[in-house]
């Protein structure tokens, strides 16, 4: 397989069969917390995509040029947390200055992403799979697209549920967790696609 085919395969697998939320169970807190409205869910997805791409890029650089030559690969989790946290802070400052409208639309989601485990997860998976720079960034973007798909789908379902009659005990998070489980089972059907 040439690189292009590999990228296509990565696209399909990271969105469908290896979806961050439904098969890796990473990033569940924003998935449950910010999925009340389709609009905000899409905003969160956008923010995550943005940060994941940058995080993949920078952690790959830090790993390859600092940790690997010094034989400190066991420090990757710790240093990646550092990188992601500073990166999000930096992006926030940058957006505030250069694009106030984007900053306003991302709103509180940017700082929330600092502690999003999907972001840390994608960077660690990049290293685990020994991806090169291109594939790391691609994995970050595609993984985030999968995350966006999941959270927007979830928000769509929850918006509809707002207007349906439900037993008192199932309202809110209990029904959300059941839905998440059902969606996860549905996504299980994609497993095996793309190897």
């Amino acid at each position: 397989m040439n690189d292009f085919t590999k990228l296509l395969v990565l696209l399909v697998t990271s969105i469908l069969s290896n979806n961050f939320i439904f098969s890796r169970f990473l990033g569940c807190c924003p998935f449950l917390g910010v999925s009340n409205k389709v609009e905000t869910a899409a905003g969160m997805g956008l923010a995550v995509t943005f940060v994941m791409a940058l995080a993949s890029l920078f952690t790959w650089l830090v790993y390859t040029f600092i940790l690997l030559p010094l034989g400190l690969t066991y420090l990757k989790t710790m240093s990646f947390i550092l990188v992601i946290a500073s990166l999000v802070q930096f992006v926030e400052m940058f957006l505030k200055k250069s694009s106030p409208s984007l900053y306003r639309s991302l709103g509180i989601y940017l700082p929330l992403i600092t502690t999003n485990c999907a972001v840390l997860g994608v960077t660690l998976i990049n290293i685990e799979q020994s991806y090169n720079l291109l594939f790391s960034v691609a994995n970050g973007v595609f993984g985030a697209l999968g995350f966006t798909l999941a959270i927007v789908l979830m928000a769509g379902v929850r918006e509809r549920l707002e207007f349906s009659k439900m037993p008192e005990a199932l309202k809110g998070f209990s029904s959300s967790l059941i839905i998440a489980g059902l969606m996860s089972i549905a996504f299980l059907g994609f497993s095996g696609i793309g190897g």
Binding site: Q89, M93, S98
Partner: peptide, 27 residues
Amino acid sequence: LTAGAVMGALAIIFAIILGIADKKFAV
């Protein structure tokens, strides 16, 4: 010591970058 130094150095570098960014991108 190397591990400590590398993590410390990374932290300091990021802190400096953020510090500069804070001044530069101050709204």
